[in-house]
Write a protein that binds this DNA or RNA. Sequence first.
DNA 1: GACGATTTGGACAAGCCTGTCTAAAAATAT
DNA 2: ATATTTTTAGACAGGCTTGTCCAAATCGTC
Lengths: 219, 219
Amino acid sequence: MTPAIAPDIAVVRSHSAKRHSILDAAAGVFCREGFAGANIDLIAAEAGVSRQTVYNHHGDKENLLVAVVREITERINAGVFETLATFPDKPVNLEAELVDFAVRLNQNCLCNRDGKFLRKLLQTEGERYPELFSGWREHGPAKTWAALAARFARLAHAGWLDLDDPDVAARQFLALVNADLQMAMIFGDSVSEEQLRAAAANAVRCFLRAYGKARPHGT
Amino acid sequence: MTPAIAPDIAVVRSHSAKRHSILDAAAGVFCREGFAGANIDLIAAEAGVSRQTVYNHHGDKENLLVAVVREITERINAGVFETLATFPDKPVNLEAELVDFAVRLNQNCLCNRDGKFLRKLLQTEGERYPELFSGWREHGPAKTWAALAARFARLAHAGWLDLDDPDVAARQFLALVNADLQMAMIFGDSVSEEQLRAAAANAVRCFLRAYGKARPHGT
DNA sequence: GACGATTTGGACAAGCCTGTCTAAAAATAT
DNA sequence: ATATTTTTAGACAGGCTTGTCCAAATCGTC
């Protein structure tokens, strides 16, 4: 009754490839047009798939949105986790390494395609379907801030920083990193590698002027 | 041929009251539902007006959106200008006065009903109708930043601040002021007066740690 | 009270979109 | 090669929305 293993995964692969393609196209269209304005024919066309196939895979327009949001938040969370692991815990040149870290953060999480999509979907559909994002809301930014705050606290303990409140400092770091990019992002402009580095450099310079110490006490 | 003055302004008053009511309702609906999802019947109902009257006043759905955006950007610009005039040019207690200024900025411009609407409309329709916001884009944030930067530069000249680049400092000031409110705003939560003051206090403390001088040289 | 303009409610056509159905086509595994 | 499953293209009903038209009603002024 159950088929052999090989055919199953072969079917699943094609199946999953189409599924992924649909999710990708849907993310783009939902993001551009909003949920109400999104046209399933257009999604199907952009996915290179017939409309019926979209319905076969996800059943409903609303269901499709749910799947898209789940996919994106999962990828975002993975990206944040991965990038957070590259935080300079044992810096040699703190300023340079924080700048690199900030650039990675922007490239992998905030200025990302996924980051842009999540931000936009959140803004357009967040109030209408609050339960859609409630999972991310609980496990997303709060955890990121806490993790970043812990890193900064460790840096402070090692004598690199002078912090009153690591949580506040973490939020301020993220805010500063985005300071020069907000307008570009809100207008949907693309940001060059150059702009990204300059923004990160400005942010880190300000951050270290506020919270940096001249030398770690260990040296 | 031309009627007397009184009837004219009386007619215009009722006319303009309805017009304003429609614009107000339309702003709310466009913002909640997006352009595609906005229902003109709903706008009319929320404005307390018949659908036909909406068409009489603004002709077209797209036209209505244009009118809404124009109205909001004009009000926002006025609010920014007004608030900017309350910048502490001759401070006694710089930290306290900057905190007050930041609170005003948030209340009158950023966390405002208008501010929220503009942000959301910009995000949802900005890429589809770029020319809609091009006017604000040119004359809005850039001018605000420049004006704020000039104030900071004057403060630096008076010995209160130590700035490399006033423009960067102005952007960072605004970014810091929003640091603690971003999540609340993105989720559409309302922010209490308390949160607003706390956020402003955190922002100003960080800003002054980075750029403040102990005393102005004039004293 | 009469007059002119505005507003109203409802009817209406036209278009678009969702979601379903069906039969043909394509792809895959055996 | 055949059988099974997936995919496709198209038609289709149903619903909703925009924008227009029109006759009745309302409002403010003379």
